[in-house]
Amino acid sequence: MGIEFRNVTKTFGGACVVDDLSLEIRDGEFIVLLGPSGCGKTTTLRMLAGLESVTSGDIFIDGGPVNDVPTQHRDLAMVFQSYALYPHMTIAENIGYPLRVRKLDKADRAARVRRVAAMLEIESLLDRKPRQLSGGERQRVALARAIVREPRAYLMDEPLSNLDARLRVQMRGELKRLQHELGTTTIYVTHDQAEAMTLASRVAVMNKGRLQQFDTPLKIYNEPANRFVAEFVGSPSMNFIEREHVTEGIRPEHIQVLSTPEDGAIEARVYVTELMGNETFVFLSVGDNRLIAREPADFRADVDTKVWLRIATEKIHRFDPVTGESQKHIK
């Protein structure tokens, strides 16, 4: 049946940290809560775990209300940003802790720990202590501890943010594969939109405590509900031009830079180019506005060259200049 948030609000002192959040999560989905720091995504996760109380509203797991159910009885597993490995226990004891607490017998525990360790390729580390492990290894131990139990859902709080860039990409892939194999509902918190796009079956974008949009990654990218979502998702981010009654947005890949003028093309000057290796980012100035365009790797242009821009008009997004709400884009 899944997980449901119904009009959930959380206030700390006077400040409203989560504002009237409603979400329905289906069994087996990989949901990502995406947003900048302070947007309330971690607080939402912690309310689901029972580590924060709910100020108003209700949370349901498999149809049953859990507001009053203490953390230890919710049958969820969590991977913390800091991994929260027990420093005084060995890796095997760390992984086996949830089973020990449920009074499984020793032999049973050991078997399951070994199985999970094999799955994550950390068998050789079972007798060591957390302080002897590298960041990537600790992260896998934290994962192992979460999956050893077969809980109702996995909660993950920015688990990859402490890893270096290369390891992060590698672990991203392994996480996705793992979730696919295990099929358990996962709720994943991050501020990294690339992680959200690549991992999620659906993304919930949040800002300042409010849900902005809850949709598949592709829909979020192509049909953003408001300016915030449009700007937050996509790298480099969408270009915006403020007009009198509307804000227009166009993604960098929908701008083509031409060396010769043509019908309908806009005049512009090259501000600077960034050669990324696999593509080139072209920074342009059009009147008072700055735009970014994506061009293939072999694109070259000198600074201050006059160029012309072909814009795919059907890809222009239109937003209300005051509320930021999306108006249907021009067909």
Partner: peptide, 27 residues
């Protein structure tokens, strides 16, 4: 002591008292 160790213990299914005895006191 940072809180997340006890929180991890709670999520793992331990009671408050159990977390105190098994995780906090040794540390």
């Amino acid at each position: 002591l940072p809180r997340d160790l006890e929180e991890a213990a709670l999520v793992d299914g331990d009671s408050r008292l159990g977390a105190l005895v098994r995780v906090v006191l040794p540390l």
